[in-house]
Amino acid sequence: MQVNWKGVFPAVTTKLKQDGSLDRDAIVSGLNRLIDNGVGGVVMMGMVGENAQLTPDEKRTVLKIAVETVKGRVPVISGLAELNTANAVQFAKDAEAIGVQGLMVFPGLTYRSDDRETVEYYRSIARSTKLGLMIYNNPRGYGVDMRPDLLAQLADEANVVAIKEETYDTTRVTDLYARFGERFVVFCGVDDLIVESVALGVTGWVSGMANAMPKESVDLLNYAVNGEYGKARALYRALIDLFHLDTHVKLVQYIKLAENITAGYPEYVKAPRLMLEGEERQRTIAIVEKAIANVRALSQ
C-alpha cells in the first residue's frame, strides 16, 4: 500500500489486560472502531502505545495483530523507539517484513544525541528499509530537535517523507513549508494545536485523543482543511479541554481513561505507570464527560 500521508492518524493505544499482557480482542476491536469512524491511518505504538514499555516480542505481536486486522483498509504505521541504532535498524527490517506501510521514528531513547549523531541515526534507519519514515520531532519530550537545517541534510533520503511536528511552536510549520515546499509532509503532533496548524497548511494529524473521539476528530480536521472554520472553531472549543490532556506527561493514562469512558476499552497501563485515582481521576472524568456533553449540544 502506498501511504497517503493525510488525515487523522490516531496514535493507537496498546490495550492491555490487568496483568499487563496484550489484550488482543480489545486491540482488534479498537482498530476496527477507528477505521469505521474514518481515520486516514493508524500509528501503532507511539507514545500512547507505550512503545518503550513493551518487550521486543510484544512490539512485533502488536504489529502482526494490526496488519491482520486492518487488511489494507488504511495504512499501518509503526512507532520506532529504540535505545541504539542497531536495534532501531533491526526493528525497521522486522516491521517491514511484518507488513506495515511506514514508520514513525523517535530519536534514540535515553541518550540526547548531538546534531551530527541525530542526522546519522535517522539516515541509518532510512537506508535500512524501503518504508516511508515520519520523523517524530518532540524536543520537549526527548531533548532532540530536528530543526529545518538538520532536516535539510536528510532531503536526499527519498523515504524520509514526513515529520510529526511537536515543538509546540506553530511558526515551525511555516518555517518548514517556506524552506522545503512540499518535500516533506508536515503532521500536527499536538491535539490542542490542530486548527492552528491546518491554517498554516497541515493536512495530517497524529492524534492521541482521537482514540476517545475518533469521529469528532475526523470531522474537526475535515472542517478545517475544507475551510469551514466556523464549524471547526465550534467543535474545537467543545473538545479543547480534552485535547489539553494530550500535552501532559500522563497523556497515556488520560487517553486510556477517556477511551474507557467513550468506548469501554480497558485502561490498564504498563508499570511504572499506574492507573489514575483520587482527585486526578475524578477531574479527568469530568473533562471527558464535559467534552461528550459539549459535542452532543452542538448536534442539537
Rank of each mutant, 00 (worst) to 15 (best):
Tyr177Pro: 03
Tyr177Phe: 15
Tyr177Ser: 06
Ala178His: 09
Ala178Asn: 14
Ala178Trp: 09
Phe180His: 04
Phe180Gln: 09
Gly181Arg: 09
Glu182Pro: 06
Glu182Val: 06
Glu182Arg: 14
Arg183Ile: 04
Arg183Cys: 02
Arg183Pro: 04
Phe184His: 01
Phe184Asp: 04
Phe184Gln: 05
Val185Met: 08
Val185Tyr: 03
Val186Lys: 07
Val186Glu: 07
Phe187Asp: 04
Phe187Val: 06
Phe187Gly: 00
Cys188Pro: 09
Cys188Asp: 13
Cys188Thr: 11
Asp191Trp: 13
Asp192Tyr: 12
Asp192Met: 14
Leu193Val: 05
Val195Gln: 02
Val195Glu: 08
Glu196Cys: 09
Glu196Arg: 11
Ser197Ile: 00
Ser197Glu: 02
Val198Ser: 03
Val198His: 04
Ala199Ser: 13
Ala199Ile: 05
Leu200Gln: 15
Leu200Val: 00
Gly201Glu: 07
Val202Gln: 10
Val202Tyr: 04
Val202Pro: 06
Thr203Val: 11
Thr203Lys: 12
Thr203Leu: 03
Thr203His: 09
Gly204Trp: 02
Gly204Arg: 05
Gly204Ala: 13
Trp205Asn: 07
Trp205Pro: 07
Trp205Leu: 05
Val206Pro: 07
Ser207Trp: 02
Ser207Leu: 06
Gly208Val: 04
Gly208Lys: 03
Gly208His: 03
Met209Ile: 08
Met209Gly: 00
Met209Pro: 10
Ala210Phe: 01
Ala210Val: 02
Asn211Phe: 08
Asn211Gln: 08
Ala212His: 06
Ala212Tyr: 00
Met213Gln: 10
Met213Cys: 13
Met213Glu: 11
Met213Lys: 07
Pro214Ser: 03
Lys215Tyr: 15
Glu216Arg: 14
Glu216Ala: 15
Glu216Thr: 15
Ser217Ala: 15
Val218Gln: 00
Val218Arg: 01
Asp219Met: 12
Leu220Ala: 04
Leu220Tyr: 08
Leu220Ile: 02
Leu220Met: 12
Leu221Lys: 10
Asn222Met: 03
Asn222Gly: 14
Tyr223Glu: 00
Ala224Glu: 06
Val225His: 05
Asn226Ser: 15
Gly227Gln: 11
Gly227Lys: 10
Gly227Met: 09
Glu228Gly: 07
Tyr229His: 13
Tyr229Thr: 10
Tyr229Val: 01
Tyr229Cys: 01
Tyr229Arg: 11
Gly230Phe: 03
Gly230Val: 09
Lys231Met: 13
Lys231Gln: 14
Lys231Trp: 04
Ala232Trp: 00
Ala232Leu: 01
Ala232Ser: 02
Ala232Met: 04
Arg233Trp: 12
Arg233Asn: 15
Arg233Lys: 13
Ala234Asp: 13
Ala234His: 14
